[in-house]
Design a protein around this nucleic acid. Sequence first.
DNA 1: TCAACAGTTTAGAATAATTATAATATATAA
DNA 2: TTATATATTATAATTATTCTAAACTGTTGA
Lengths: 142, 142
Amino acid sequence: MLKNMNFIEKLRETGLRPTKQRVKICEILFNREKTFHFTINDLAKKIFEELNEKISLATVYNTVHALQKKGYLKEISINSNKSYFDTNTSVHHHFYDEDTHQLIDCDENEIETVNIKKNITGKKINSVEVLVRVASDNQNQN
Amino acid sequence: MLKNMNFIEKLRETGLRPTKQRVKICEILFNREKTFHFTINDLAKKIFEELNEKISLATVYNTVHALQKKGYLKEISINSNKSYFDTNTSVHHHFYDEDTHQLIDCDENEIETVNIKKNITGKKINSVEVLVRVASDNQNQN
DNA sequence: TCAACAGTTTAGAATAATTATAATATATAA
DNA sequence: TTATATATTATAATTATTCTAAACTGTTGA
């Protein structure tokens, strides 16, 4: 994957000035095997844990939004008062575990391609995403 | 539909005490032909417009959540800092117009049943919903 | 190399949605 | 009708996010 990538180059290529903070955030986000689902708060906490250094919350917001705009991150639609982001930017679907509030990527072969038979006139489809809400089997029995 | 239904009886049946405020909110929500997509704020505004009477925001929140818990309303997954609710409680999908920020119900025949081939072990699927994001055709051309 | 400038970061204030609180009011059952 | 459990309300508190304005830093070009 993106392991050990030179984030400075990567950022520069996309027109983002490779500041110290942005490089650190990229390291945290992309230097990992599996995709990462997070809220801004999760990310800020991780930065502090892994780097033992605080980056201003405003900067975390700005940087995440900049990365999202450039297509390095994707915002996910779950109903929640927080925004969730995903380092897996391909079009893909999610399971949302209502017990643990965890978000799990669907493998491509777990959900069949969704067939949209009729679209709104004059509009272009930007994305089609499925959210499968699951919960423990013994719950919701009433 | 629910037109001219006796909301007092309806509420009582489901164990919600039919207070003046709850009945009024039910009237606004369910005495209509088409389904209604709204945020708490939209609803509060409509209450004031139609009844010329103010119901405390806290009550609107409480009531909407009570109705949701009883299955009269459904919360919709769009990424936004607000919660959206829907008076159409059947499992159905949505188009989200990114230009106008409008939410549009999909007709049943516009999207084929989504086939989930593999589920998370030990979990029960509560809902499967599709969000189709659309935007004006001449946008996003870059 | 260094000055200048544009773009960044930052702390903290501002805003907005939502939830909590606690006093008052009301619906309902006895 | 009265007691009691529940609901409503205004307001305060909380939380996520955005704004602001000052200080800082990466980059460009002299």
